[in-house]
Simulated scan of single mutants.
Amino acid sequence: MLSYVLLLSNAIQFDYTVLSLLYVLLPESYELQFDEDRAGVGHEIIVKFLTKESTHFVDIINEDLITQCNENLHTNSKDLFAQCAQSVKDFLSKEPFNEFERSKYFLRYLQWKTLENRTVTAKTFRMYRVLGKGGFGEVCACQVRATGKMYACKKLEKKRIKKRKGESMVLIEKQILQKINSRFVVSLAYAYETKDALCLVLTIMNGGDLKTRPDIRSGISDGNT
């Protein structure tokens, strides 16, 4: 989505960056906040994007909707800005998108989507060192050949899965990873199978996990947390 809106803002003769960032970043900057912090972050969003005096004011959002956001700010609802984000999406899907289709950037976007929709196989990736091992196999660092982006490939050996009757557990794990969309938890980017293994390609978290930290037993400071 982010690549799409950046191309869109480049393609049309108007600065839609504010609109795009509002739609893309609201879930990141608001929904993922702790309950006690959400009201403060929500207030910052309202001041920056939904206040007429602001240089970043988004004037395509209905005034009644802005009033509703102000009135419900204290509720800390995760869906407080959902209708605002939808309004931005609806607006971008009309004339801005038509202008985007007429630009050179639309072809580039289609090329990206074509690459994205190619069948994923073991040949899609370069495999590197082992990052860890588990009950059904191992996790290796890998790189997408076409883009150079790094991931972690979790290889689940079919023989081990069958021997331990773990078919349903593996399927549930895949379904959960598909639904996760968070900066703090790994999510599923690709999935494919070979003759011997089921492979889940996950977002990679540099730095390891909490178990590998030397100070985990003595406690982690608030700053490091």
Rank of each mutant, 00 (worst) to 15 (best):
H43I: 08
T55I: 14
S9G: 04
K179A: 12
E101V: 12
L177E: 08
I12Y: 08
Q111F: 10
L177D: 04
L25C: 10
L131Q: 12
L171E: 15
G207I: 06
G137C: 02
I172P: 03
Q86Y: 11
A191R: 02
N117T: 03
L7V: 01
D59N: 11
G148N: 01
A152F: 09
H74M: 13
S87Y: 10
C140E: 09
G135E: 09
Y23V: 13
L19N: 10
Y190S: 05
I45V: 11
N224S: 01
D196I: 15
T17S: 15
V41M: 11
L7H: 05
S20K: 02
T147L: 03
A146M: 06
C84Q: 03
E138H: 13
T225M: 13
S168K: 13
F136W: 04
T114L: 15
K104P: 15
E71F: 03
V185M: 04
Q83T: 10
E101G: 00
R108I: 15
H43S: 11
G219S: 04
D59G: 15
R118Y: 12
F125N: 05
I161L: 05
Q83N: 02
T67A: 11
V24M: 01
N72F: 06
K94H: 11
D222Y: 11
H56I: 05
R213C: 13
I66A: 02
L131T: 13
I216K: 12
K78P: 00
L73D: 06
R183Q: 07
V58G: 00
F81P: 04
R102E: 14
K104L: 15
A141V: 03
E116V: 14
F136I: 14
Q175F: 07
D215Q: 02
K163Y: 11
G137P: 07
P27H: 02
V58I: 15
Q111K: 14
N206H: 04
C140L: 15
L19K: 08
G137S: 04
I216H: 12
T212N: 12
C69L: 10
C199H: 00
I46R: 00
I216N: 08
K48T: 09
T194L: 02
R160L: 10
E53I: 01
